[in-house]
Amino acid sequence: MTQINAYVGFNGDCRRAMEFYRDCIGGELTFQTVAESPIANQCAPSMKDSILHSSLTKDALLLMATDMTGPDGFIKGNNIALSLNCSSEDEINTFYSKLSAGGKILEPLKDSFWGSLFGCFTDKFGIMWMLNYDKGTANQQ
């Protein structure tokens, strides 16, 4: 099922913010630090405790967050992206091509270390998009 979720950047406050949201909303909260990820050696040692990815789930609610920033750094206002979880490889290719037209490619569509096809861009209206297709779901369909 294709779905859009919010993905929020916190520039160092991700753990504290997501724990606050969990305390307010409830649900299950998970974190992956930079040190726990395959990209740890590509990041400065000072970033090892930074949150690479966090998710808060409760029923149909999914809120995702990170401490990571884009190539232009952290600027309030550019810290929220729309994360589009696609249901097929054809769908992600179509959406990526159409939505990124006239925008700025931040991450070309490619295989990721978490087993998904992933790409990131800012569209022509300045909205950041993160497209993801979990290749493992292809076997479940």
Rank of each mutant, 00 (worst) to 15 (best):
D90A: 15
K98F: 15
K58H: 10
A44R: 10
E28I: 13
D111Y: 09
S83E: 15
Y96T: 06
E36C: 06
G70A: 10
D23V: 05
I80E: 07
V8E: 00
G26V: 06
L82R: 01
S55N: 12
E19K: 11
C43M: 14
S54P: 02
G102M: 14
L62W: 03
A65W: 01
A17T: 07
I51A: 03
I75G: 07
A65I: 01
E19L: 15
A17R: 03
G73S: 12
A101V: 06
L106D: 07
S54V: 03
K48H: 14
A40W: 10
D90P: 02
R15K: 11
P45T: 12
V34R: 01
S83Y: 12
G77I: 05
S37F: 12
C86D: 01
T57M: 02
G77C: 07
A81L: 14
Y96P: 05
D59F: 09
F31N: 00
L99T: 04
N11F: 14
F31Q: 01
A65Y: 02
Q42F: 05
S54Q: 01
N78C: 08
T94Y: 13
L56M: 05
H53G: 02
L99F: 14
G70Q: 11
D90Q: 14
P38E: 00
M47Q: 12
M68Y: 00
K76A: 13
D90G: 09
P38I: 01
G26H: 04
I80C: 09
Q42N: 15
E91T: 06
G103V: 06
G77T: 03
Y21L: 10
T94E: 13
K58N: 08
S55L: 06
L61C: 08
N41G: 08
E28P: 14
N79I: 09
R15H: 11
A35Y: 07
F74T: 08
C43R: 09
S100Q: 12
R22S: 04
Y7A: 10
R22T: 00
Q42C: 09
M47H: 10
L99S: 04
E89T: 12
S83I: 10
D111P: 02
A60V: 14
A17M: 12
F10A: 02
A35L: 08
L52M: 13
P38S: 03
C14R: 00
F31R: 00
T33I: 06
A35V: 02
A17D: 07
I25N: 04
L56R: 00
G103M: 06
L56T: 03
I25A: 05
A44P: 13
A6K: 07
S46A: 11
N41M: 15
L56C: 03
I39F: 09
E107S: 09
C86Q: 04
I39Y: 08
P38F: 04
F20Q: 08
Y21N: 03
L61N: 06
C14V: 11
D67H: 06
P45W: 08
L106I: 15
K104R: 15
A101R: 12
L56H: 02
D72C: 07
K98R: 15
R16F: 05
L106Y: 09
A101C: 14
G77S: 08
I80M: 13
D72G: 15
N93F: 10
K104E: 13
